[in-house]
Design a protein around this nucleic acid. Structure first.
Lengths: 134, 134
DNA sequence: CAGCATCCCTTATGATACTG
DNA sequence: CAGTATCATAAGGGATGCTG
């Protein structure tokens, strides 16, 4: 087994959260466990292949877990953020806040025409301890 | 001019800091202004083309500035983190700390064979105000 | 319902040679 | 010394059809 060596810790974090749809997946999973079909509704533009792919990567990194209900097809599959996944909360919120400020500044300066649709409160539930969430 | 719309603020942040060599570039630039040749020494494996490319992207996002000294070749070119670039400090440190913890956990669990070479203190200088740095 | 396999395209990154 | 231009390759993502 060959060892993967990152130069900086933040590269390891980037490896976990970067991917075209991972931020949105993490955002929706922060609201609680989600079925596959829930995620497809939340992210209408993702392809089936990439959805499965990115969820597998998050599983490999210990960020989400997968539970299967039912003996035979059709199955019910539920994805849940692990405790490790929830521990990303502060990082995700801070990245979101910085990104929002940066986009506002870029637009104000006229350097780039950019916008952000949703605000960082999408991750707020991760900032509470699991016991607080009920 | 077509508008780029991010769904989440963190996607805007990822757009700025993701790139194979950007974390390391930001880390070295956090120690102060750097000449092109300094960066090439610090990142021996980056190609000339990609070095220029990633620096241009950081400039386009207002993260670094570029100063040219000299009337004709050979020039002296210096890259410096802007105030916006320095404002990334907290985000970069937190991402690094989380990544280090995560890598340690992955290794302890035997799930992946990973390691991080440098620790998050590489970004520590960004946590001070510019006036404090002298 | 959830997922796999295949083929295709776009993007990111790399190697090399050349210029002011 | 710094940078451009060109060509080549790798990685990420998307479209479609099929399966238990």
């Amino acid at each position: 087994m060959t060892r993967k060596t990152y130069r900086l810790g933040m590269e390891a974090t980037l490896a976990v959260i970067s991917g075209k749809w991972k931020p949105q997946l993490l955002c929706h999973l922060s609201n609680g466990p989600q079925r596959t079909c829930d995620l497809r509704v939340a992210l209408p533009e993702i392809s089936q292949k990439v959805l499965t792919q990115q969820l597998r990567e998050l599983m490999g990194d210990g960020i989400v877990s997968r539970q299967v209900y039912g003996e035979r097809a059709p199955f019910k599959v539920v994805y849940t953020l692990t405790e490790t996944g929830r521990s990303l909360g502060l990082v995700l919120v801070q990245m979101s806040v910085w990104g929002e400020c940066h986009v506002a500044a870029l637009r104000a300066s006229g350097k780039q025409d950019v916008a952000v649709r949703d605000d960082h409160t999408g991750f707020d539930r991760l900032l509470n301890t699991p016991e607080d969430a009920h």
